[in-house]
Design a protein around this nucleic acid. Structure first.
Lengths: 314, 314
DNA sequence: TTAAATACATGTCCAGGACAAACAAGTGGA
DNA sequence: TCCACTTGTTTGTCCTGGACATGTATTTAA
């Protein structure tokens, strides 16, 4: 309501677009050459200046590529068509209650009520317990936030605020869950090109909630180091997470290669959007199709090993 | 002690080197052209393959550049000379007790005792309180871990383990400190090219410990968004963090530009290694030269405003 | 000693070519 | 109907070598 036209809509340089969209500079240039999009203006030196509208469009395109579309199918389309394509994917099956809760939490986010958002999350957590909190609230909310962002209904600061608050709540929970210390010993991380943090944080919390001894090494760990660390630390399981941004073909190749390197006695669990319907191509790897699945995976590991180390005193 | 020669020492492609060292592909190529280093081998296609030793050397070079050395001074030297130069910088003044404590915590790290490391951190935290814990333990430890890493005394998984555990401890503390809610209202974040997380986490915890209402938006926030968000949210202060990896010249330019954009009524605080001895060039900006300084900054803000909203009930 | 002017150092951008790996579509067999 | 293989196309990443603005060092003038 003040004097802020001309705002953040300034044209961006190619390096800024790379940071914003995650598309490599080289990719942006080669798309321009091949598909005539994006078609940035040029400054007096002939360097690219991307108008805000094109960057916006690139964000949606990125999202579509992550969902399996191919460049040739999306790089001709206009923004309206792209949004239609986006809608065609979003067929998530939420209960009415979940939809309502997501909407009210999103509203807090849009109003920049960080403290209240955190309180609300903690409240749901306290009422429903860690497991249901993550599966029924955080997971759908993550998706809702991502969707709202590409739609332009959320700003970047709002998205960051969300991530920070969820991270605080989850890490707090993780600290409190420590000390259960039963097997399996699970090593949790991601491959070097996967930077998504919330995924492994949710898995870490869920594993601890099952009483498993789960250690996270964060994101972006070199593959050779994962195998070595798991072996030296006597881990029973290595668990890896792949967001939708990870090219699924690459995920399958890397995982199968990694299975070869990894000690046969260590199980390999992998999950995330990039592995949707890829079970058949992954040999000797447990695919975690769903966060809900983790509980049964841990149970079945214990059954097979007959290591009933669970609270024998209770 | 098993059959693992030939291990992670495999030559790396240019994209991997970029990820590992943080040096842009373009920079690596232009260095090769101008300084004949790094001089990677080539595969059958003529594509660069960097031997492990060169990557190791690049890591040290990166560290030296972050400390103000110029490429022409370091790109001719061999690994031994580079390490000498590194030593010449590391003149940190730690007490004997701090040195001993750092060493023992580092040892836990090298032994992969994640749980014990966290326990030890929590123990120090409980005994010394949040403020002393961060300033006298976490800050020196961060530096020790960074130094050990370029020396090759720590592996990447060990460094990740450290970051994860510290993050858990700090975020746990942050959750517990919430609810003080006095002014100043501080907005905490970093510029888009700054990805270092631990810095702002420490500052966030310290501000909350002073009873200030501090909100973190994480790292890598677009500059225009920071100004807008701070204004709309009625923040008193915007605080920004700059690690040693941020080119200090760029930091100064960006900060002064940002000061222009930001509402005059909002104070701008900035700190971190990149701003060492840059106070003179920063106009209208409070330079946080030291974590210890934050306490007095908050105090003086309250004095000036005469907003003594502090615990009047206690 | 400070300040302006000059020369040098350095990172980022550009164009356009090349190629392997990923993919789509078609083919043949169980 | 399903799977395994072949073939042609799509697509991202890498290459070279040139250009230039901006940041840093050095000299010159006040």
């Amino acid at each position: 309501m003040m004097l802020d036209f001309e705002d953040s809509q300034l044209p961006m340089r190619i390096a800024e677009v790379e940071r914003d969209t995650g598309l490599a500079k080289e990719t942006l240039r080669v798309w321009e050459r091949r598909y005539q999009f994006p078609k940035p203006e040029r400054d007096e030196l002939g360097e690219r200046l991307y108008p805000f509208t094109q960057v916006e469009q690139l964000r949606v395109i990125r999202r579509l590529l992550d969902n399996g579309f191919r460049p040739s199918k999306v790089l001709g389309k206009n923004l309206g068509q792209l949004h239609e394509m986006l809608d065609s994917i979003n067929q998530s099956h939420l209960t009415h209650e979940q939809t309502v809760r997501c909407a009210s939490l999103l509203k807090l986010l849009r109003l920049h009520r960080g403290a209240e958002l955190r309180q609300a999350l903690n409240h749901v957590f306290a009422r429903e317990g860690l497991r249901r909190f993550i599966i029924e609230t955080i997971a759908p909310l993550n998706k809702a936030v991502g969707d709202a962002w590409v739609r332009g209904e959320l700003t970047i600061p709002e998205e960051h605020l969300y991530t920070e608050q969820v991270q605080n709540v989850l890490r707090h929970a993780i600290q409190n869950q420590q000390g259960v210390d039963d097997r399996p010993n699970i090593l949790l991380t991601t491959f070097p090109d996967e930077a998504h943090q919330l995924g492994i944080l949710m898995v870490e919390a869920l594993c601890l909630a099952e009483g498993a001894n789960c250690l996270s090494l964060g994101t972006r760990l070199p593959i050779a180091d994962i195998a070595k660390y798991a072996q030296e630390g006597n881990f029973d399981v290595v668990a890896l997470s792949f967001s939708g941004a990870y090219p699924s073909q690459v995920a399958v190749r890397d995982l199968n290669q990694f299975r070869e390197r990894l000690d046969k006695n260590i199980e390999l669990w992998a999950g995330g959007q990039a592995l949707y319907r890829k079970e058949k191509r992954l040999h000797g790897i447990r695919v975690v199709s769903d966060l809900d699945h983790i509980q049964s995976l841990i149970k079945s590991w214990r059954d097979v090993r007959q290591v009933d180390t669970s609270r024998s005193v209770a």
